[in-house]
Lab assay of single mutants.
Amino acid sequence: GPGLTDLFKTEKAAVKKMAKAIMADPSKADDVYQKWADKGYTLTQLSDFLKSKTRGKYDRVYNGYMTYR
């Protein structure tokens, strides 16, 4: 089956995709945050998933999740 690194890459891609969806349409934020909360994502995990070469690119999404939880 898929190894943990593959799983991480898949999760990371999914999280980034959802983060971009929030940035494009902030009204989606609560739905996405709820999904992440259901998956039990911690802020540390989210921070790892949303690492970007562009500093602060996903800060709004991260901060939103922090206040959501």
Rank of each mutant, 00 (worst) to 15 (best):
M18L: 08
L7C: 15
Y65S: 00
T42C: 03
K35P: 00
A21N: 06
D48L: 15
Y65G: 01
Y41W: 04
E11Q: 09
S27T: 12
M18W: 08
T67S: 13
K12H: 05
A21D: 08
A37L: 15
S47C: 12
D6Q: 11
A37I: 12
S52G: 10
Q45A: 06
D48P: 03
D31I: 09
Y33K: 01
K17N: 07
T67K: 15
A37P: 00
Q45L: 06
N63F: 15
R55L: 15
K39R: 11
M66T: 04
G64D: 04
M23L: 14
K35N: 08
I22V: 11
A21L: 15
K35S: 13
I22F: 01
K51L: 08
D59K: 07
T54L: 07
Y33M: 01
A13N: 10
R69A: 08
T10M: 11
A13R: 13
Y33D: 00
D6L: 08
T54G: 09
K35R: 11
D31C: 14
L4Q: 12
D48V: 15
M18T: 04
A37E: 06
M18Y: 06
Y58N: 01
A37V: 15
S52C: 09
S27R: 12
D38W: 06
Y68E: 01
Y41D: 01
R55S: 14
K51H: 10
D31E: 14
F49G: 02
Y62Q: 06
N63E: 14
V15M: 03
A13M: 10
T54M: 05
G56T: 05
A19P: 01
D6C: 15
T42F: 02
N63S: 10
A14T: 08
G56Q: 05
S27F: 05
A29W: 02
R69Q: 11
A24R: 13
K51V: 08
G3E: 12
A29P: 01
Y33S: 01
D38Q: 13
D48C: 15
S27K: 10
Y68D: 01
Y65Q: 00
Y62N: 03
A21H: 06
D30P: 11
K53I: 06
A21P: 01
Q34K: 15
A29L: 02
R60F: 12
K28R: 12
G1V: 14
D48A: 15
P26N: 08
G56D: 07
Y62L: 15
Q34E: 09
K12T: 07
